[in-house]
Design a protein around this nucleic acid. Sequence first.
DNA 1: CTCCTGTGATACCCGGCGGGTATCACCGCA
DNA 2: TGCGGTGATACCCGCCGGGTATCACAGGAG
Lengths: 282, 282
Amino acid sequence: MDPLETRELRYFVAVAEELHFGRAAELLGMAQPPLSRAIQQLERRLGVMLLERTRRGVALTGAGEVLLDEARATLDAAAAAARRTRRAASPRSRLVLAAKAAGSHELLRKLLDAYAAEPDAAEVEVVLCGIGEETRLLRDGRADAALVHPLFSSLAGFDSEELLTEDQVAVLPAEHPLAARPFLSMAEVSDVPDLPMPRWPHPDGSYPPGPGPEIRDPSQLAQLIALGRTLAVIPASARAWLWTAHTAVPLTDAPPVTTHIAWPPHSRSRALAGLIRTATRL
Amino acid sequence: MDPLETRELRYFVAVAEELHFGRAAELLGMAQPPLSRAIQQLERRLGVMLLERTRRGVALTGAGEVLLDEARATLDAAAAAARRTRRAASPRSRLVLAAKAAGSHELLRKLLDAYAAEPDAAEVEVVLCGIGEETRLLRDGRADAALVHPLFSSLAGFDSEELLTEDQVAVLPAEHPLAARPFLSMAEVSDVPDLPMPRWPHPDGSYPPGPGPEIRDPSQLAQLIALGRTLAVIPASARAWLWTAHTAVPLTDAPPVTTHIAWPPHSRSRALAGLIRTATRL
DNA sequence: CTCCTGTGATACCCGGCGGGTATCACCGCA
DNA sequence: TGCGGTGATACCCGCCGGGTATCACAGGAG
């Protein structure tokens, strides 16, 4: 059986995400009929029903769910192939390092300084990204390495090294009674009636249930804390972005959080190896 | 820029492996001119020279080396997508477990028995493969999980759990003087003039230099030991395949060897999760 | 020096297939 | 019972992937 073409996978992912042939075709910049036909051909080639066509819209079958995951991974791999090949051809070797925009910038600064001091250091471009976006950048080749907190995004599929373990602090509105305390426990902060814990999105974009506000952007969170609407438990190094309206209180029993540096497996770049070496020596 | 098609990647991999357009075209079942044209189009689309055309044959550029790796990974991902989708559609859920043909069969037996005793166990098919082939099977979707010795094949790119750590023994020809010893040290076995250590292939198929015989198949090794031409240092559990012409002698200072169970990241199969759970409980 | 061999590149043609337009078949709903 | 909206079908066309024939060029043998 001849292998799947990325074109077919792109089409399938579009339909599977939209669950609507018309909208998917529009996103793909094509008409609906050829898209329908392409999906039919894909199903015939695989010998598998991928979509449940109900009269009103479309649903994924079990096999369709599997293919959606696998197709995304394959398309990422293809995009990474193109990007990394182009970058390998460009004369000056440059490294792209992904990091959360709200991540510890002390660690980032130390890493960049230490690496720049190496004899044969490459130029490092830092890409600041949102929560959980780092692994996507690694997968599709837009980044060569990433600083990752395994709590938010899994390290599965990458090589990684532990860089830094730090305690966490509670960030409270400065005028809140708890802000005057020298220490707090997790039990105390997780059950403050007027400051419900914020809710972070899952990788799929959905939110867990609960009373707290839905957070997408760390600056949202900072604003909401300053407004006295919520509190946050974050790594101690994030004190850097505290506002005057914020107060950080050490937590006695919060689990320590570690930062890893992760990179795609089987990378043979000398420059990347150098960056990782200096990172682990910090 | 529209993404690379798997067809182009297949063509490039064929040429990059053969370093000869004519032979590559023959392997692909097509004529040489369209293949040349396809590679030219690929180079134009990427804006990158991939091959150094000398008048006599072809060589890879640096960017070509990178693309060869990336293209292989992408093609594996596409093959895995097709296979896993088909398998997901088949009614009865089946797991495919890859293991070295010469691996510890006690561990395998225990694992299969324990899993079969689980309440909702799926049927497990065992694929026996050669040295270092396990990760390939995992990557291209022919296997759902594999028993791996990290010494031979890296776990990079997979999730894994440690299963078993065991000591190693020296396997000698039964009539050799050293076979009578109750214990041996690594220093003693690694420098026996008439029994040079065998050489195992690297992942790329090449062999390290040295006086010992080149081994590809464990049965070759067994035969060569029985003939008094070499010796082997192997995990203690491999006593299972000892011949009467072999003698196993415990090693006092050989590094212990661990067996891992590895699986592709992001797999959501319940059956696989069950297998891994029972494996880690062994 | 010349011819032969083997390499990849070029020129040209054709058929299939990917894509477009028009339309249908069907369901839910006012 | 019509109307809106869904995906499927019918049909056409142009492009591009593939084939054949041939070229351009370097190296080696005589």
